[in-house]
Amino acid sequence: MNNSTEKAEQAVTIDISGYDVATAEIRSEAKRLLTEKIVDAVVGYQAGRRKGSAVPVIITDPAQAEKLLFSPACVNNLSIYLTKAKKEIRAKGKLAVVAKGCDLRALAGLVGESQFKREEVVIIGVSCAGVHRAGIQPGEPLTNSTIAKKCRECSVHIPDEADLVVGKLPPLPDLPPKEKELMEKLDAMTPALRWEFWKEQFTRCIRCLACRQVCPFCYCEQCLCDRGRPQAVDTSPRPSGNMGWHIVRAMHLAGRCAGCAECERVCPMDIPLNLLNRKMAEELKELYHYEAGMKPVEKGPLTSYDEKDDQSFIK
């Protein structure tokens, strides 16, 4: 295993024949849900202008169901459109949403945080073999070099907890993890070197806040980091404020992040933000045996406690 990661990976194409099945089933299900007025709108993916691209879409007319699709370009986590922050979308009425396994984890988290009730939303789960990583020209085949990092370590290819699972999962190649390796490298560094690493990364941040805006859990009406009085974090896109912003963000997502890695995908400056979320998830698992799951839980690890929690770090 260790040797194989040293060598350049051989090209592996991932079988996505199941996506055509998924597309057909999403269309017929969306049509049915809208025609029978079970839902008022369906949040899904449709083709964009660029060849092979897919973009989020909210449809309300059964005739539009034919536009829906599933492909390796369906990278977005659509659960963001279901939070209370999206007033205009919730105003459309009862919603159905197309969700990959990783997205379903976010949906479960949002139910746990009372953003919506599970029975209010119809979840169309997709058997997913993987989607593109950031920066891939749409239309490229799905291979081990174009697949997203998160998909290499995916444990939820089939979102069982959805109301309906569409598509067909082909046998999947065993892809060695990339993020895990990177994580191990960082963990092995001295704190001073890690600081250098993060400093370089955060210094690059332009504070476009794409990471916050695509995060299903960043639904706060008033972000702490937008506040002026008191100002928690400097708003200028400079190293000092950037460092503060990313630390605060990681902390606020600890125990809530569902690991969809959208923050990292959308970062126009390629900052590996999911490493922070992953670190927090790893620590929460070790400390409190908590893992973001497919079923809603009422209380997360940081909104609950155990009297016997470890306190070896406290004098």
Binding site: V55, P56, V57, I58, I80, Y81, E88, I89, R207, C208, L209, A210, R212, Q213, V214, V266, P268
Partner: peptide
């Protein structure tokens, strides 16, 4: 633009 998430990218 209903899909716009409101970032400044």
């Amino acid at each position: 633009a209903d899909r716009c998430v409101g970032c400044g990218a």
